[in-house]
């Protein structure tokens, strides 16, 4: 460890620091600018500091229906999260059996990930139109978002099960556990930390999703759609205040996931309770 750092280390460190600045700088900038004074504009200089624009978010006439869209986005995020976790675990278990035709399903999953989002938006819109169903964020929007969130959840599960030590399951079976008991008391606790990761992907990919929800959300907007609508009509820092709040919310969700991950890890390391 005491080996001298090569010169390239310092060059690359600077490169990395600049990259992180590039990654976070703009977000920090709008966070600062969202505290503009009431007469401040979209760029520096700051015209005093205030929480005027955050207060503005709570006034219906200033920003439209952002709280309604926020509620819808959180609800939809939770729906996508639960579905992604359940379907990904089942899918992961399915692929362990190397069933005939599994490559077909595998290519469907890959296809779901790489298909340009606008095709999902357009196709689901047309499909609902043809069968004469109303598009709605909780039906067509929900399904469209799953085509984006599920592949991520599944790929995490594939990676998890590829590294899974099967002797635990064999031990459980030798002790007389039924297949369901093996899953419930052995497999799930061991993969629990990864499930938190899948849940994080499920929720955030839905909460921030835009392209696949555009034509499939129907009358009521989700938050990203509402924000996108605002970019053409709103020219005050209220946009930054909203951006800052949703980013803070995202960080909060990521923080929750990290805490959950650590708890699950600690639990995995403990000896199994005898019941």
């Amino acid at each position: 460890m005491s080996e001298r750092r090569p010169f390239s280390f310092y060059v690359l460190s600077v490169f990395f620091a600049v990259f992180v600045l590039f990654l976070y700088g703009p977000t920090l900038t709008i966070a600062i600018l969202s505290f503009q004074g009431p007469s401040g504009g979209l760029t520096f200089p700051m015209n005093g500091t205030s929480i005027h624009w955050f207060k503005n978010l709570f006034e219906q006439q200033a920003v439209g229906d952002i709280w309604g869209s926020f509620r819808r986005s959180v609800t939809l995020g939770l729906m996508v999260m639960v579905t992604t976790v359940v379907v990904s675990v089942l899918g992961g278990l399915a692929f362990r059996t190397h069933f005939r035709g599994s490559s077909l399903v595998f290519y469907m999953v890959v296809g779901s990930l790489i298909i340009p989002s606008i095709l999902i938006s357009l196709g689901v819109g047309i499909l609902f139109n043809i069968v004469d169903l109303e598009v709605h964020w909780a039906t067509s929007g929900f399904g469209s978002q799953l085509t984006w969130a599920l592949p991520f959840g599944l790929f995490i599960m594939f990676a998890v099960f590829n590294r899974f030590d099967r002797s635990y399951e064999e031990a459980a079976r030798d002790l007389g556990a039924t297949p369901w008991q093996t899953i419930r008391h052995v497999v799930i606790p061991i993969i629990a930390p990864s499930l938190i990761g899948v849940a994080l992907f499920g929720f955030t990919l839905s909460y921030d999703e835009f392209a696949r929800t555009l034509l499939t959300a129907g009358t009521f907007n989700t938050l990203p759609l509402e924000i996108y609508g605002m970019t053409t009509s709103v020219t005050t820092p209220v946009l930054y205040a909203l951006g800052t709040l949703t980013t803070v919310f995202s960080f909060f969700v990521i923080g929750l996931a990290i805490i959950g991950f650590r708890l699950a890890m600690r639990k995995t390391k403990q000896p199994l309770p005898l019941d």
Binding site: T83, V86, V87, L90, G91, L93, A94, F95, T97, H98, F99, R100, G101, S102, V105, M108, V109, G111, S112, I115, L119, I120, L122, G123, V124, I126, L127, I130, G143, S144, L146, T147, L150, L154
Partner: peptide, 26 residues
């Protein structure tokens, strides 16, 4: 094979409705 398809069925159903059918519709 039966077990595999059964476990994968929620995935297959969702992707059929929201990926395969929409592409066919397009």
């Amino acid at each position: 094979t039966l077990k595999g398809w059964l476990l994968a069925s929620p995935l297959v159903v969702i992707l059929s409705i929201f990926l395969v059918l929409p592409v066919i519709a397009i």
